[in-house]
Design a protein around this nucleic acid. Structure first.
Lengths: 249, 249
DNA sequence: CTACACAAACTAGCATACCAATTTGTTATC
DNA sequence: GATAACAAATTGGTATGCTAGTTTGTGTAG
């Protein structure tokens, strides 16, 4: 069941299943060669993820992408991480220093960038942030930030697709954060984190400056005849659109 | 199914179903006169809530209460609400003023306190906070704060049971927040909110100063022969314990 | 040609039966 | 009496059939 959940989730996150599209239990169970029960259970979990909405006796539909929620989640992340960075600086000590909780992922980050290994780059980036939460004494919050909001993943995926990112500066910014924490400078760490994540307004601006993405989201959120298409036909539609827009999914 | 989910959730939150206890699908479905399917689906949702853990081919167990997670959630709430209060102050304008989004729930709060109507007191309190999120332009974050962390509800319930609360001061604190927002004082609003919610350390201290609650949580988290008891027998156990401790559940 | 009514098809919700794996209780062996 | 092996019972996972409600398509009346 977990596998089905992951599969459908992946299809939705990568926008191969488009908003408002119907994802019927029977259709998927048939396509996957499984019974309806595990599919149904996957749907319940997807409902919890906020990725689909079940309408009794009618159908299950992919939820529209709500970009406002993404902004909110980004804003929340900034608030939390800035506070956590300060707290980590306050709690920093020789023991943490010796363990290399921050220096190790930072080194890995530098190395990954040098090798242009973007997969490990993202991994090390995440590890750095996660370990900082650990130093701050609130390790569980990382998951809340990461999975707390319903639909971060789809927008994040689209950002990748539209190549909205920045790698080089990240290393320097992490260095600044790490050094402020080493120096036990609460204020410095907060400022460095603020600079790293940018403000809420910056985030909004950055996405608005990429109207292509906003337009794309608006477009796929619209109801259309594709809503009536089948599972397979819709994947086909997504593929066509993908090629047309020359994206790398 | 929603009803079953709510029922079991309520039983767990009110600690009538104790941590580590087995809650078998068949047992519950039988007790409720329903089939296993809806019970099973409720279990999936409870898993998402972090209230139970399913061990395949073994059983479904109530998760232990993790008080650290509660602290983390409280800390996160403070970080977020302080930032949101500042943002609300920055965005405050005549339109909001005229609409009474903040003044109305505040008045209701005062009135509820005067009538010792604690139900409406809590309602107005929540409405005030929620509306502040609206003024800040991030209404969706309120739900993230409220339901984001897995196990806020059980500790919150226990706090009520152990009578750890404070009502009178809340009104004054809300007034301070509201007035800072009216004055469009970002810094003032943040400070007032910080004072209202207290710091992370204060929260921890407050609960530590109530060792009875900490001890109680430790105790019910421990494995014991009750883990082998049945659904009904365990509810009985909870009732006994309740009476013994003279709590008002 | 349009509007409405009705029927057929499809939907998710639920009940039930069966399966494989784990746990637990018992028995046989030392 | 302790321990190991085996068997019976219990568990969650899955498949499937049925039901009630919604949607959609078709046909008929205007």
């Amino acid at each position: 069941m977990e596998q089905i959940h992951e599969l459908i989730r992946h299809l939705i996150v990568t926008v191969q299943l488009l908003p408002l599209q119907r994802v019927s239990e029977s259709e998927i169970s048939e396509a996957l060669g499984a019974s309806r029960t595990p599919v149904r259970e996957a749907m319940i979990r997807l409902t919890n993820d906020g990725l689909v909405k079940v309408v009794p006796k009618s159908g299950t539909y992919v939820t529209p992408i709500n970009i406002d929620r993404y902004f909110e989640a980004a804003y929340m992340r900034i608030l939390v991480e800035v506070g956590v960075a300060g707290r980590a600086a306050r709690r920093w000590n020789a023991e943490y220093e010796a363990s290399g909780v921050l220096s190790k992922p930072f080194s890995a980050l530098e190395e990954a960038l040098a090798n242009k290994d973007y997969f490990n780059f993202a991994r090390s980036d995440e590890e750095f942030h996660f370990n900082m939460f650990g130093v701050a004494g609130v390790p569980g919050l990382w998951n809340s930030i990461k999975h707390g909001q319903p639909d971060l993943s789809r927008v994040r995926h689209l950002k990748r697709v539209f190549k909205i990112r920045r790698s080089e500066r990240v290393v320097d910014e992490h260095r600044a954060i790490a050094e402020a924490i080493y120096a036990r400078s609460e204020e410095g760490a907060e400022k460095a984190m603020q600079a790293h994540l940018g403000t809420y307004e910056d985030e909004a601006k950055k996405l608005s400056e990429s109207p292509m993405l906003v337009d794309y989201i608006t477009k796929i959120n619209e109801p259309s005849e594709r809503n009536a298409r089948t599972f397979a036909a819709n994947a086909e539609f997504a593929r066509e659109m993908k090629e047309h827009l020359a994206f790398t999914f």
